[in-house]
């Protein structure tokens, strides 16, 4: 959005404009943040600016799981208490966080950095699938858990990977697909409902 019309000094309108581009930050919040920063001490602004630059300069991909990290291997791959016989495949680094929060999974991860999406021109070779196959052929992995998103591209990607690794004889599992907690049966779509029925469990 062009904010040249605002009756404020150019550097301020520039900052508002940049903040406004961030996810979840509307024009109002962008203004509030900009004026907050304007009044804050100079070193606070410098700390923030350095932190922002720092994520670009100091971060790299873990050479094993391709998670974003400042040390290679990353803290998860380096953790000796983790179960190295399991690898959970996710689309993006950000998907690791919610899985870690559950505290139910102690295995390793593998980040694809995308999903197959032919209409966007994203093909299997654009994803980090080769690295996965290398890991599977060398390590003592006994289970691969597919945790791509439950949408068409995510499912297609999982089906594709499943087909590639099936000959290796490793157990392949898929996160259960069903009704969201706090959801409403009435509004569930047919695919979600039929998958939830298929995945029903003893009580």
């Amino acid at each position: 959005m062009n904010l040249d019309f605002l009756p404020v000094a150019k550097p301020i309108s520039k900052l508002i404009e940049e903040l406004n581009k961030l996810p979840g930050i509307g024009p109002k919040s962008a203004q509030r943040l900009a004026y907050h920063l304007l009044q804050a001490p100079a070193e606070k602004s410098r700390d923030l600016a350095e932190a922002i630059l720092g994520i670009k300069e100091n971060l790299k991909l873990c050479s094993s799981c391709l998670n974003i990290t400042d040390r290679d291997p990353c803290s998860i791959c380096n953790d000796e208490t983790r179960d190295t016989t399991k690898i959970c495949i996710v689309e993006e680094p950000i998907d690791i966080m919610p899985l870690e929060r559950t505290k139910k999974y102690r295995g390793l991860y593998h980040v694809l950095h995308g999903v197959i999406s032919p209409s966007d021109g994203i093909k299997p070779e654009d994803l980090h699938i080769r690295e996965l196959l290398n890991r599977l052929s060398s390590a003592e992995v006994t289970e691969v858990i597919l945790a791509t998103n439950p949408n068409l591209e995510g499912e297609a990607t999982s089906m594709y990977i499943q087909r590639l690794i099936a000959p290796l004889g490793i157990r392949i599992t898929r996160l259960a697909r069903g009704l969201p907690f706090g959801g409403d049966l009435e509004y569930a779509d047919d695919i979600t409902l039929s998958r939830a029925l298929e995945g029903r469990q003893e009580m």
């Binding site: 949408n151 068409l152 591209e153 969201p180 907690f181 706090g182 959801g183 409403d184 509004y187 569930a188 779509d189 047919d190 695919i191 979600t192």
Partner: peptide, 15 residues
């Protein structure tokens, strides 16, 4: 794309 969205799977690709 939020879990529990009333639109959700009803507006999924190829629906």
């Amino acid at each position: 794309m939020r879990p529990g969205s009333k639109l959700g799977g009803n507006v999924e690709l190829l629906t």
